[in-house]
């Protein structure tokens, strides 16, 4: 009986011992290459499972909105004034906002919505202007300033997608930039076409303006295959309301 039990145990113990010895020999054989293999594996792997599809994030949280269908102003028709009601925002939108309360967006984050009821424009605004961002919205040049800082805000977008309505914009139209810390309104003062290489169209020129100006720009002309991409449509708008950042 004992002999039989030993025989049966041998069918477990012996293969297990062979396995241990085998792995030991394999480990000794590959030991010289282990450092290189582990360096390669560190490059190819992450500590945790990678987020394969990282969606563009948002810190923008819109309040309740009541939108009214609008048309371009026409003396023959009744003009309906735009109304955007954001009850929570109205309580939280004083004349000033402390910089400590601001949540600065990271690159690739949505932080606002830009709208203009006169031209049916309503687009998400992202921090950064990479090609990935311009596919999903309009992007702000990171060297410019956020609304409320009394400096230039440069926002770009593709002319045949999100900024397509800009072809209808006129002086006097109101652009609304709805951020997480306040709502800003800008009145369009100038709509002009310039060559991208013009000094007036340069970033340095735009950023050196010492007052709060919303500057939108996109390729020009609209809806055609341009022979060259030299021209840009610029929309300049001055601030009319919105909290200052202290």
């Amino acid at each position: 009986m004992r002999y039989k039990l030993l025989r049966i145990m041998a069918y477990f113990v012996m293969p297990f011992l062979y396995m241990l010895l085998g792995y030991t020999l394999i480990y000794i054989a590959v030991l010289p290459a282990i450092t290189s293999i582990s360096s390669v594996m560190k490059v190819l792997t992450t500590a945790d499972e990678p987020e394969i599809r990282q969606n563009i994030k948002t810190i923008y949280s819109p309040g309740e909105k009541e939108t009214v269908s609008l048309q371009k102003s026409n003396p023959q028709e009744e003009v309906i004034e735009p109304r955007i009601i954001t009850p929570e925002k109205q309580e939280k939108t004083p004349e000033q906002v402390s910089i400590a309360e601001l949540q600065f967006p990271d690159l690739g984050m949505q932080y606002a919505v830009l709208s203009c009821d006169q031209i049916q424009l309503e687009v998400p605004v992202y921090w950064g202007d990479s090609k990935e961002i311009l596919e999903v919205g309009v992007g702000q040049y990171v060297g410019s300033f956020l609304p409320g800082f009394k400096r230039s805000i440069l926002i770009s977008g593709h002319n045949n997608s999100y900024f397509n309505p800009l072809q209808f914009i006129e002086t006097g139209d109101i652009l609304v930039c709805d951020t997480n810390y306040g709502q800003y309104e800008y009145a369009v003062t100038t709509v002009t076409v310039m060559k991208a290489k013009d000094a007036a169209a340069s970033l340095d020129g735009m950023l050196s303006i010492k007052k709060e100006k919303l500057i939108l720009y996109t390729c020009y002309p609209f809806d055609t295959l341009p022979v060259n991409k030299e021209n840009r449509l610029f929309v300049f708008a001055d601030k009319i309301s919105g909290p200052e950042v202290q």
Partner: peptide, 27 residues
């Protein structure tokens, strides 16, 4: 004994790999 040991040696690594799912850390 040999065939059992081969079964063990071949089986342990894939089982550990499939249980730990460490291949998901590939990037």
């Amino acid at each position: 004994y040999s065939t059992l040991a081969s079964a063990l040696m071949l089986g342990v690594v894939p089982i550990l790999l499939l249980m730990s799912k460490s291949y998901n850390r590939l990037h």
